[in-house]
Amino acid sequence: MSDTPRLHRAGPALLERARELRPLIEREAAAAEERGRLTEPVVDALHDAGLFTVWIPAPLGGAESAPTELLAVFEELSYADPSTGWVVMATTLENGTAGAYLGDDAVERIFAGPRAPLIAGQGTRPGTAVPENGGFRLSGQWSFASGMPHAQYAHSLGAVEGSDEVHICVTPIEDVKPLGNWDVLGLRATGSIDYAIEGAFVPESYTHVFTLDEPLRGGALYRLGLVDQALICHSGWALGVGRRLLDELARHAAARSGRPGQIAASDAFHTGFARAEAAFRAASALVRQTWADAERILEDGGRPGVRQETMLRLALNHITSTLTDTARFCYAAGGTSALRDGLTQRLFRDAHAGAAHITSGPQVLAACGRELAGLAPGESWVVFGLEPA
Rank of each mutant, 00 (worst) to 15 (best):
E371D: 13
A10K: 01
L216N: 02
G123M: 12
L372R: 10
G335N: 06
G186S: 06
C233K: 12
S321Q: 13
L312R: 11
F210C: 00
E76K: 02
V184D: 10
F210L: 14
C368F: 02
P23N: 00
F348H: 15
P172K: 02
E161R: 14
W142G: 07
S65N: 05
G36P: 06
I173L: 11
R328I: 07
R37V: 06
E132Y: 03
E379H: 14
S380W: 12
I173T: 09
E214C: 05
G361E: 04
A265Y: 13
Y206L: 00
L316A: 06
T68C: 12
R115H: 13
S78T: 15
A58S: 13
F269E: 12
G186M: 01
A10F: 07
L118I: 15
D104A: 15
S146P: 12
I319E: 04
L38W: 02
A282W: 04
S2G: 08
I25L: 02
A253C: 07
Q345L: 11
L231R: 11
F269Y: 15
L93A: 09
I358N: 06
G218Q: 09
L24C: 04
F74I: 12
S380K: 14
G240A: 03
M1W: 06
M311V: 10
A250H: 08
A366Q: 08
A315G: 08
P362D: 11
T207A: 01
E165L: 09
R307D: 14
E94N: 14
